[in-house]
Every structure is written in C-alpha cells, then in structure tokens.
C-alpha cells in the first residue's frame, strides 16, 4: 500500500483530511472487511517472504507426492511433493509484488502523463493522447502477453508489461479532471502570478486529483492481480519454479480429478485477495468521495 501513502494528506476540494478519510474507511463495512482480508493476505505474504513457514515452496519431495490436506500439510501437496500452503503463500506474495510494482509504475507514468496532457494541452496532449489511444485499442491481454514474451521473463518484466497495459487508464482518469481544474480560479490566479507550469501542476493540480488517483490505485491492484494470474495461466506469467497463483491453477487442471486441493486452495486465496482489494477499493472511494457513497 506504499502507493497510497506516497500521496499524503490530499487537501482536496472535498476538504477531508487523510486521517478522517481513513476513519471513514474503517466505518464502512465494505472497507473494513476489505482491509481485514487484504491484511490477512499481507500477513501470509510476509510470513512467506520472511521464511516463517514450515516448508520451502520449491522443495520437491517424491515421497510426499499428492498428499491430501492434513495437519502436516495444511493445503496438501502437489505432484512433486511440494507443500501447497507454502506455494500458495509464496504465490500470493509474488502476485502482490507484481501487482504493487505494476500499479506503482502505471500510477506514476499515468498521472504524470495525464496531468501534463491535460494541463499543457497542445502538442504534448496530442502525443500522449495518441499513445493512449493506441494502447487502449491494443487488446490488453494480448499486449501483456506479447510484451511478456519479448524480454527474459522475470517477475519484474511481467510487472512492467502489466504497467504498460494500465498506464493509459491512469492517463484517462486524470486528464479529464485536470482539464476542468486548469480553468478554475485558483489555478488561473497561480498562472497569473507567474508560477511555472511544473510548480502549478505539482502544487495545485496534483493534490486536487489525489483522491481520484487513490481510488484508481486500489481498483487497479485487483485487476493487476487478475492479469498476472491470467498471463500465468496462459504460460506467459511468472516463470516456474517460482509459484504464481495463476500457474498453480493451470498446473492443477490436469490433476483436478486426482488431487482437487491443488486447484481449490490457490483459486480460493486468489479470490479472497481480489475480493479484499475490491472491497477496499469501494471503501476508499466512499471515504474519499462522499457523493459516491451508497451509489457505487
């Protein structure tokens, strides 16, 4: 959630401080449930990242092959005798890492692009809008898929591929409001007092679209998780042996009759994560934009 913190205390026109918004978030049932779900998953990721789990997600043990869930292996083991719980934890950590980096990149690039495009207009607007149109018209999954095949595949290149797909969304989402904002009095007066465009964009425009960006960030996180999973499912996501929820489901498909737990658990955790992110997104939107409350 570092992205959310990176745009602090949006003194937005809605006039609500970050802290108040957070309180609102806790008060809305959706936001609270989302926060709890995401928190639980985050703990799981942390446990995996710090090697606190009893099994190594990559360790193959022929003697422990395809064991059903038990007290020893909570989610059972897969065809190579790897602990499914450890793999799910590592997989969800991997998904989260990719989603966070992807969204961070697209937020950064998209916001800058959107503000520049909307505020400066003219040639830069035409150029940025042109690129945005092209990326939008390119089928998103195919774009990610092709990008992912170009570079030596690591989690980072996947994140970049997903970021490219989502950047135009951030450009569109920010450009519209910026167009309106640049005609508003306080921006005009800032311009009149001779402030540089860069300063105006940073000081006056950005804080006023912060809430829009934050809402978009939370929503995009869940899409990014799903996109990574779909790519892995098509064999073009995180390269094995590193686990990914999508590739776990894909590999489990052929043995679902023999070992259903190998598909159920990664699928379940993926859904929990995405539900959590979606709820959190709704909660954040309600908290930041009182007008949308009860209407989403």
């Amino acid at each position: 959630m570092s992205v959310v913190e990176a745009t602090p205390a949006a003194t937005s026109s809605n006039g609500r401080s970050g802290r108040a918004a957070f309180r609102m978030l806790l008060r809305s049932p959706a936001g609270l449930v989302g926060l709890i779900l995401v928190g639980l998953i985050a703990l799981l990721c942390l446990a995996s990242a710090l090697h606190l789990l009893p099994y190594d997600p990559l360790l193959q043990e022929a003697s422990q092959r395809m064991r059903p869930p038990s007290s020893e292996h909570w989610f059972g083991t897969d065809r190579f005798g790897r602990d499914v719980f450890a793999r799910v934890a590592a997989g969800v950590a991997n998904s989260a890492r990719i989603a966070l980096v992807a969204v961070a990149f697209s937020t950064l690039a998209g916001t800058i692009g959107g503000i520049v495009s909307g505020y400066l207009r003219g040639a830069s607007d035409a150029a940025i809008s042109g690129v945005t149109n092209v990326l939008f018209a390119f089928p998103p999954l195919l774009l990610a898929l092709t990008l992912a095949s170009v570079f030596a595949r690591t989690w980072f290149t996947i994140a970049v591929a997903i970021a490219v797909v989502y950047t135009p969304i951030f450009i569109r989402v920010t450009r519209g409001p910026v167009l309106t904002l640049r005609e508003i009095d306080f921006v005009r007066s800032a311009r009149a007092t001779g402030q540089s465009p860069a300063a105006i964009m940073a000081r006056h425009i950005l804080p006023n679209i912060a809430s829009i960006i934050i809402v978009q960030v939370t929503l995009s996180l869940s899409w990014a998780v799903l996109t990574e999973a779909s790519l892995s499912f098509l064999g073009l996501g995180t390269p094995p042996p590193a686990p990914s929820l999508g590739s776990m489901v894909y590999e489990a498909r052929t043995l679902v009759a023999l070992a259903p737990w190998t598909m159920i658990f990664p699928g379940l955790i993926m859904v929990v994560l995405v539900v959590g992110l979606n709820l959190l997104g709704d909660g954040v939107r309600d908290a930041l934009d009182p007008q949308s409350r009860g209407k989403r």
Binding site: S222, L226, A229, S230, F233, G246, V249, Y250, R253, V256, A257, P260, M263, G267, M270, V271, V274, V275, N278, L279
Partner: peptide, 22 residues
C-alpha cells in the same frame, strides 16, 4: 457483483469443466 469482479474467468471455467468432466 463483487463475486463477478473477483472470480477470474479461467478459474471459473476450469472449475466448471472439472466439475462437468464426469
């Protein structure tokens, strides 16, 4: 609505197919 947004097509499709296999 939330379930629809959160359950990816490949998961739903794969499970449906697995369930219908027999």
């Amino acid at each position: 609505g939330l379930a629809g947004l959160s359950i990816p097509a490949f998961l739903l499709g794969s499970s449906l197919l697995a369930w219908l296999a027999g």
